[in-house]
Amino acid sequence: MSALKKRITYLQGLALGLNISIHSAEGKVLVYMIDILADLAEMVTKIQSEQDDFKIYVDSIDDDLTSLENMVYVTLGQKVITGGMTVQNDDTGTFIAERNGEACFKAKD
Rank of each mutant, 00 (worst) to 15 (best):
G93K: 04
S21L: 05
Q51W: 07
V87E: 03
L37G: 00
T9W: 05
A3L: 13
L4S: 04
L65E: 07
H23R: 13
R7T: 09
I20K: 01
A107S: 15
N89L: 07
I56N: 15
C104P: 05
E26K: 14
Q78S: 09
T66C: 07
D63P: 04
F105D: 05
T82A: 04
V44D: 07
I96M: 02
E98C: 03
G83P: 02
I81M: 09
G84E: 01
D53H: 10
A103H: 11
A25K: 14
V74Q: 01
E102G: 10
T66Q: 14
I81N: 12
K6V: 08
T66Y: 09
F95L: 04
Q78M: 05
V29N: 09
E42Y: 05
N100I: 04
L14H: 11
G93N: 07
E69P: 05
D62P: 05
E102R: 10
L68W: 11
L16P: 08
M1T: 07
A38W: 01
Q78R: 11
K6S: 15
A103L: 08
D64M: 07
A3D: 14
I56S: 14
R99E: 04
T82N: 01
S2R: 06
T94C: 15
D64T: 05
L40P: 06
Y73N: 14
G77L: 03
K79P: 05
Y10H: 14
E26A: 13
D39S: 15
G27W: 00
E98S: 04
A25N: 15
E69M: 12
G83C: 03
L18A: 12
V58Y: 06
V58W: 06
M33F: 13
D109Q: 09
L37R: 01
I81R: 10
A15Q: 03
E69Y: 10
L76M: 13
V58S: 09
M71R: 04
V74L: 01
A15D: 02
E50S: 13
G84I: 03
V44E: 11
L11Q: 01
F105R: 05
S21A: 06
T82Y: 02
D52F: 12
K6Q: 14
I34K: 00
